[in-house]
Amino acid sequence: MAATYPENYRYTKEHEWVVVEGDTATIGITDYAQKELGDVVYVDLPQPGDSVVAGKTMGSVESVKAVSDVYSPVTGEVIEVNQKLADAPEKVNEDPHGEAWMVKVRLSNPAEVESLLTAAEYQSYIEGSES
């Protein structure tokens, strides 16, 4: 069954999603990414106060046999980290677009978001890579 990718989110080719409210961006990885990884066993995230840069590594997600970097889609300062993932990494598999958000970032350049993929663009991008 094809997953639904929320229309109000933006996406990266590295399979992160971002949703903006005011000057705060919430970031996670996509349903496609969690399926590719398989059962997630650990999520390594930055700490509040760390700065993240668009396109640069900000953490990683591990399954039993693979580890995948998580790239920040935006630039800014980490203001909150989803502590729940430390004890319940399986949330990334269960609800990647919701409960398993990873970090909230205060945007230093909100315009950056505009250059990211829309839900429709992302969907056609992953359909292309699945063939």
Binding site: V41, Y42, E62, S63, V64, K65, A66, V67
Partner: peptide, 12 residues
């Protein structure tokens, strides 16, 4: 916790 190891993480 084998993902810490080099056959998965390679240079990382």
């Amino acid at each position: 916790l084998t993902t810490r190891e080099q056959h998965i993480r390679r240079e990382k």
